[in-house]
């Protein structure tokens, strides 16, 4: 009797151990499968995009179908302009709101703003495009770079707000007290001591936000619209790399497909550089903290 129970126990243990190994192995497979698409995408981008990616691509304007060569100089410049406008709006508002959240912590308004900024962060980007179109394109009767930049800036706000808040919370309270004890007004304490100490983390957050909006396309359909010609004017339609990639990708021409791949490669390199820079800033910060 006791013996039979023992055998049952042993066989159940063996079964449990097998289950353990199988499930653990499955998580390895999940990790492999999850990283596979990235490898595929990067591989295809390099293979398809690299051959079209000549210096001309960066300096030439788009050419009509049938003409070889051509580039996306206008779209690259356009994307940089849009990012600049977005930063001019998203950074001050986001950092300011982040300061507010860090300072008020559990106040009713702070809780509401924190929750709503998370909700805003989850809204589809196309919705922000409609918002900018309704208020900034429709009344003026023209698409514009400014409307596009504002739509992207609005997307940055919740991202920058939450990272700013988190980074400021990492600054020890003792530094704040030390500044107050020296007779610093609160605003000087925030600006000269707290923000300055949290700066590397906030820069990281800002870079992550920029990386995310740099490739945004949907809101630009309603605002910046795209432009086949050279334009840097803020109140006119402006070309953007993601828009150009989209237009070329859904076209029926092979030359344009090649251009789309090259554009996508440039875009992903920009995004990767920004993402890596963000990681580097973070590492530099923690490196100095351990000295």
């Amino acid at each position: 009797m006791a013996r039979r129970q023992r055998t049952a126990l042993v066989s159940s243990l063996r079964r449990r151990k097998t289950g353990n190994v199988v499930m653990l192995a499955l998580t390895y497979i999940a990790a492999l499968l999850a990283t596979l698409p990235l490898v595929f995408i990067l591989f295809h981008l390099l293979r398809q995009g690299a051959s079209t990616l000549t210096p001309d691509f960066f300096t030439n304007m788009p050419r009509p179908v049938g003409e070889a060569g051509g580039g996306m100089s206008n779209a690259i410049v356009g994307t940089l302009i849009l990012i600049a406008i977005a930063c001019a709006i998203g950074l001050p508002v986001g950092v300011g709101a982040g300061l507010y959240l860090a300072e008020k912590r559990a106040g009713a308004l702070a809780m509401t703003v924190r929750f709503l900024s998370d909700v805003l962060n989850g809204l589809p980007s196309i919705v922000l495009g409609i918002f900018a179109w309704q208020f900034l394109v429709r009344p003026f009767g023209r698409f514009s770079a400014l409307a596009g930049g504002i739509a992207l800036g609005a997307m940055m706000i919740p991202l920058v707000t939450r990272t700013t808040e988190e980074m400021i919370r990492l600054v020890p309270n003792s530094l704040r007290e030390a500044a107050l004890a020296l007779g610093y007004p609160r605003w000087r304490t925030s600006m000269s001591v707290i923000l300055r100490t949290a700066l590397p983390g906030i820069v990281t957050g800002a870079l992550v936000a920029v990386a995310r909006i740099a490739g945004e396309t949907a809101p630009l359909l309603f605002t910046a619209f795209g432009n086949q010609f050279w334009s840097t004017s803020l109140d006119e339609p402006i070309a953007a790399l993601p828009l150009q990639i989209f237009a070329y990708a859904i076209s029926p021409y092979d030359e344009w497909h090649a251009q789309a791949w090259a554009g996508a490669l440039v875009l992903i390199v920009i995004v990767l550089i920004i993402s890596l820079a963000a990681r580097h800033v973070t590492r530099a910060r923690f490196g100095s903290a351990t000295d």
Binding site: S174, E177, A178, A181, V193, R196, T197, A289
Partner: peptide, 12 residues
């Protein structure tokens, strides 16, 4: 003026 338990130099 005031000085605290832990040193609080401004790190930046």
């Amino acid at each position: 003026g005031m000085v605290f338990q832990r040193p609080t130099p401004f790190p930046t």
